Amino acid sequence: MPPDRMLSVVTAVGDRYTRALRFFRSSRPDPGAGPADLRLRIAERRVEADEVVSLRLVRPDGGPLPAWQPGCHLDVTLPSSRRRQYSLCGDPADRRAYRIAVRRLSTGGGGSREIHRLTAGETVTVRGPRNAFPFVAEGPLLLIAGGIGITPVLPMAREGARRGLDWRLVYTGRTRASMSFLGELERLGDRAFIRPDDEYGVPSVDDLLAGAAAGGSVYCCGPAPMLALVRAGFRATGARSLHFERFSPPPVVDGRPLDVELRRSGGVLRVPADRSVLSVVRDARPNVAYSCQQGFCGTCRARVLPGSDPVDHRDRRLTDAQRAAGDMLICVSRVHGDRLVLDL
């Protein structure tokens, strides 16, 4: 979204949120677990906005689907074998159908273009639901969405309305025509503020965070500039916790240059301090498998071979046993040193 669905980073400030999240995790399946693959039929394809389509997915036998909560996503395997993550944006109470929505990108985004070519009656394979953006509302609630970032936030707004929470939503986009699900949001009442840039101007940090209340929670999903504004201004709000989801890989921090040997081909690649191992490997091997680019999904897992410096694991997916066996997620992890040898 914006880029094909990329997975989340949740940032929390405050002991009360930590306790709430601990309860959430203890009462629901582990985000990395999830059910086996499901083959689902596209029951409906709708144009939701400029360059945005939604797909309604059902079981071919009409049976119920696994339950989900606001913030959940599906791993979708497309006919090309690409795997992408897309937020569920339907109603969790509807156990007969899942809904996802995807914006088509003009550059990159092969998965988004493939989604847009799908039609009703075709099938896709999904895994999940999984939740890397858990909704654990505390106190007054501010929801912020930019563009296709409305997809995980819309179910949160519905849940806030259903539970009678004190919630507000700020939804921004270039134009109304580019913004999805406006009719559904309008039915939730005046707590949802629709803010197109061509009517109100590009939002400032104050425009986005004016509704953040002391002791409350802020949930944000959208493009990188929006996340940067919200993160920069959050502490001044007095809100207790901030939770956000990225649409692009996180910046490489504390990186150092290294050489990566691809053992099967014998090639050696230079990885600069500010780039990920995956991004450099992709330049040389465009078909290398990857998806979230944030250390969550596990698609880019590679085997580390002898001759490597110790791995600096930065993912949120691998178990201690997998790391001990030599596995590494090359989208985020590096080495404590300057040499990495991969079984690629």
Rank of each mutant, 00 (worst) to 15 (best):
W68R: 01
R16S: 13
E261F: 10
E184K: 10
L188R: 05
A120K: 08
V253G: 07
V102R: 01
E261A: 12
Y171R: 05
D274R: 10
R59M: 12
A302L: 11
M156N: 04
L78F: 10
W167Q: 02
L154A: 07
A97E: 09
A324Y: 12
V304H: 06
R231W: 06
V277Y: 00
E245R: 06
R303A: 15
E184L: 12
S241H: 09
C89P: 00
S178R: 12
I150A: 03
V271I: 14
F244S: 07
A224L: 14
L188E: 07
R246Q: 13
P306M: 05
M226N: 03
T125P: 02
A12M: 12
D254P: 01
S178C: 12
L208E: 01
P66E: 05
E186M: 11
A93V: 12
V230D: 03
H73G: 05
H73W: 09
R95I: 15
I194E: 04
R174Q: 14
G108N: 09
H243I: 10
R264A: 15
G298P: 00
Q322W: 12
R191G: 09
L278N: 02
G128K: 06
V170Y: 03
S80N: 03
V9R: 14
C72V: 07
P272N: 10
G255K: 07
G62V: 11
D50G: 08
R56I: 11
V13N: 07
L329P: 00
V311F: 00
G222K: 03
G183P: 01
S26V: 13
S333R: 04
I144N: 02
R19I: 09
V335C: 01
F234T: 04
C89Q: 03
G139W: 13
I194T: 07
G238N: 06
V311M: 00
R256S: 15
P2I: 15
I150W: 01
D259W: 11
M328A: 15
L229N: 03
C331Y: 06
A228M: 11
V252R: 07
T151N: 05
D312P: 01
D166H: 11
G34H: 09
V9N: 13
S241K: 04
G211C: 08
Y98C: 01
L242Y: 05
R285S: 15
G110C: 10
P140T: 14
N131W: 09
G201E: 05
L227M: 11
T175P: 05
V268F: 09
A212V: 01
L78H: 11
Q85Y: 04
V10W: 12
A120Y: 06
G164L: 09
D259R: 15
A284R: 13
A228L: 14
G147H: 01
G266Y: 06
S106W: 13
P272S: 11
R282Y: 04
A321M: 08
T237M: 05
G215R: 09
R59N: 14
L342Q: 00
P79A: 11
V13T: 14
A324D: 12
E51N: 14
T319P: 01
A20Q: 07
